[in-house]
Design a protein around this nucleic acid. Structure first.
Lengths: 347, 347
DNA sequence: TTGTACGATGATAGCGCTGTCAATTGTTCT
DNA sequence: AGAACAATTGACAGCGCTATCATCGTACAA
């Protein structure tokens, strides 16, 4: 039997453990552990030995054991209503950009725009002992709120504002943004302004309220088409048709989001409705596609990257820093109206 | 001191543990554990006592400790190159549809189309001790392959086919699909067929090869425009411009994916190029938007939902069933060509 | 030389839970 | 009545890792 054999894992079917690495590097398990966590505390010689043992054995640390022993999971729990919605792409990217370099792991769960699913997702997530939680929206169930508060970790609610945050709240006023979108159309001289939406979440409804407020201010009749179906691009076309059938005089339309706007735009092309000459189309979210559509879509840009980045940085500050919390618990990051070619002066 | 005090967690700042529950219910920790995992093994009396203790203390099991002790995490590791790409929406949905009802938890990590990131993601994931891994693509690094093989868990590579799977392979021939797409254009009589792509992954390159094969068969000159930039809709417009500047005679174009096709379509609208009269556009993936674009986009539909579902079901069979593996390690689920309005006969 | 300080390394004891098997009880059968 | 058995319950020993403190050696001041 060679030395090489001796230092191989004794049990072929067993996973490689830290002890295997330590044995092979002829150091103690503690030292091997230190090489992985605080290399500067170990001499160059041993560090090299351990490093090569790790490589040779293709050792992968057992994070379960590590987390259990250190009561430090290095996990951040994130719950979003949808993974595929372009909005959350930038949002998750920002979280990764901040957390991954800081040595944290981002765990994402999807609530599918359902409060019940969100509550379950929160419970599941808490069972993993995340060091902080980031949520989209502010309408968690009472049960979920209670669990989150008991967990004793930083909790950031994002995407919209609330007067009563669980912990920290970073977002924007969806109502104001909806108002601004509608207002943009009224300011262009339109008096027959419709709205289409697929309101799964409170945020869609708040944007709708903003629209209604603008209608009231301009003494205009609200003209709505909406559905409970999940939001898709083709739905934009369907809702547009529905709206224009009911209110043929519509000259401008505010779409609950850019996907609906895109669907509406295609439907206009299909039906020979010129945009913006015959109909102005306003979107919401400023997805990447909106800028290059033809005509390019006017929309509202929400600071989704910055929102998530801000949330992440605050959590980092609390978690690893001196544990000091931000001065203010509520941060409004605002929004930007982006007027492009799909909206124009009323005839 | 009352009995109530005695049964509260001794340390206020500590999280409630199984021992706290057991103490309060006046049973042993093992029994408390059984009530949670195999209630039928415990008498009704004790079960009730433990249940109420759990509720009163708002006990949340520590999954870390549980997993460490039982070496059964109930987790499925999934690594996708992108979360926002519409393709992976259906894919992840299928995985959830199968795994969540079966009591598994789906952990998703994003490799951002980078082999290095994928290797890291695989390592991270394996550190969580998943009971199976599902990967997109077949081009894992040698190091990653080694780790996966050592892990001794089912590994399913999806989205494309390989002759040398790590374990199980479910997908389709991207090359054949690319060939079919290009062939569709040649069959319509086009002889100047271009291709635009943003080939991050091997799959894009294989589709490109399929295109090149079709070109060779029809004695046509390959006309390519591609970039290393991340794929966006607007990129479709940019690449189309590049292609048509270089080869003005192009009458048909095969786009590496539907996003590029959409961008190309908008660019055509912008420049007054009629689709399909002046230019036929062929996409790939059959995203939701493709069917309702104007004109609707011809494309290749890949069985992304079925692929993931099939992978999930095989894993379930192996993991919980008698451990028997599928008869064949390689499963080709094929693809479908969907001819819509964006492709037409050559003039 | 002796003592002190400090950096590097190791021994030990859990983290919270579950697998295993032993102990206890009650039940049924001969 | 006693044996055999099943149904419950508990004691114990880890899972793989890290926090903590003890130990060792070396360098430096006294």
């Amino acid at each position: 039997m060679t030395v090489g054999d001796m230092t191989l894992p004794r049990n072929k079917s067993r996973r490689v453990t830290l002890d295997d690495v330590a044995t092979r590097a002829r150091v103690s398990a503690v030292t091997a552990s230190r090489v992985l966590r605080k290399p500067e505390m170990v001499s160059a010689d041993l560090r090299a030995r351990v490093d090569s043992a790790v490589r040779e054995l293709a050792y992968i640390p057992n994070q379960l054991a590590s987390a259990l022993a250190s009561s430090h999971t290095g996990r951040i729990g994130v719950i979003v209503p949808s993974l595929t919605n372009g909005v959350f792409g930038d949002y998750l990217r920002a979280l990764h950009d901040v957390f991954v370099p800081a040595g944290f792991q981002v765990l994402v769960l999807n609530s599918h725009y359902l409060a019940g699913r969100e509550e379950k997702a929160i419970a599941t997530m808490l069972g993993q002992f995340p060091e902080a939680m980031i949520l989209a929206g502010v309408d968690q169930t009472p049960q979920a709120r209670k669990s989150l508060q008991q967990a004793g970790i930083p909790v950031v609610q994002t995407m919209e504002m609330t007067d009563d945050p669980i912990d920290i709240n970073i977002g924007l006023s969806q109502r104001d943004a909806g108002y601004a979108a509608a207002r943009h159309l009224f300011d262009l001289g339109h008096r027959h302004v419709g709205q289409i939406s697929a309101p799964h979440d409170a945020r869609s409804r708040q944007r709708l309220e903003g629209y209604l407020q603008a209608c009231a201010e301009f003494h205009a009749t609200p003209m709505l088409a909406s559905t409970e179906d999940p939001c898709t691009v083709s739905l934009g076309g369907i809702l547009l048709t529905e709206l224009m059938t009911r209110w043929p005089k519509v000259t401008a339309i505010f779409c609950g989001n850019d996907n609906l706007a895109l669907g509406a735009l295609f439907e206009c092309q299909r039906r020979g409705i010129r945009v913006p000459h015959d109909l102005s189309i306003m979107g919401f979210n400023d997805l990447e596609v909106s800028a290059c559509a033809y005509p390019s879509l006017s929309t509202i840009a929400v600071p989704r990257y910055d929102m998530a980045k801000c949330a992440a940085e605050i959590i980092l500050e609390i978690t690893r820093g001196t544990g000091n919390r931000p001065k203010q618990r509520r941060i409004d990051l605002g929004f930007r109206l982006i007027a492009r070619d799909s909206t124009g002066q009323a005839a």
